[in-house]
Amino acid sequence: MSELVVQARGLTKSYGPLVAVDHVDLEVHPGEVFGMLGPNGAGKSTTMRMIYRVSALTSGSLRVFGLEAGRDDRAIKSQLGVVPQMDNLDEELSVLDNLLVYARFYGLDRALARKRALELLEFLELSARSKDRIRELSGGMKRRLTLARGLMNEPRLLILDEPTTGLDPQVRILLWDKLAELRGRGVTLLLSTHCMDEAERLCDRLMILDHGHVIAQGPPRELIANQVTPQVIEARLEGELEPLEKACADLGVELLPAVNRVSLFVQDGRQMLEELERRGLFLNGAYIRPGNLEDLFLKLTGRSLRQ
């Protein structure tokens, strides 16, 4: 079936005068990993909460698995899994019981639930902790258990709200591997993140949200190629900025100064450095890197702090 997994048109959510999500159009295709990027308060979580049907739409239309939101919520929710931003495990139950009780909410019979729970604990490397209480787990274990819980009903769509925020690199890499494995099994993934590396590495397509609006959408490589130069020179700034500014203006190169360093957005870094040297400008500690998603993100959403 090539039916869209999520199809939203003009998706809007307002709380009184505050418009958290403003006419968002969104399509998630079967089997893909779709990422949502945006500063805090951009509307990522609110959009996800509408999709997993715990938040009502203010206006717009939304279909999940072709089913109409608001009318077929139970059917929609029975086919998706959710890993929320804040772990909300049941502290009164053990690791294994968290999965077993959750399975009952989906109406899974006990024997099947037990089999799946044990498999998932194995999959997420938690088997040794199955009898532990939740408060005995580390942050990374809780996150893995929350993922296991989200998989108990074998969802067609898994929604993850900032799945790796606050985790150490080992756990993050483990989770990335697991998500890649799930994708390989045909599960569609919708995730939000602040981690550009994560978005670039995992996502087939992504959207960038800011102030409730979609400001860019497409495959990460394509977005970067369209809006960011192929290479970026990073260097320390010693001495005056002005001569460098003048040279960049001459050459039509975008220059982004920070407190004591600069970034130059260029087609060819080596060539640019040579050109600057010819003009008597030597950049200290300069290195060349490819343009990346973070450049795009900061270009589109600006550098000022959000709430």
Partner: peptide, 10 residues
């Protein structure tokens, strides 16, 4: 917040 987890199921 366990109700949040419950209402994400059917």
């Amino acid at each position: 917040k366990i109700y949040d987890a419950m209402v994400a199921t059917p």
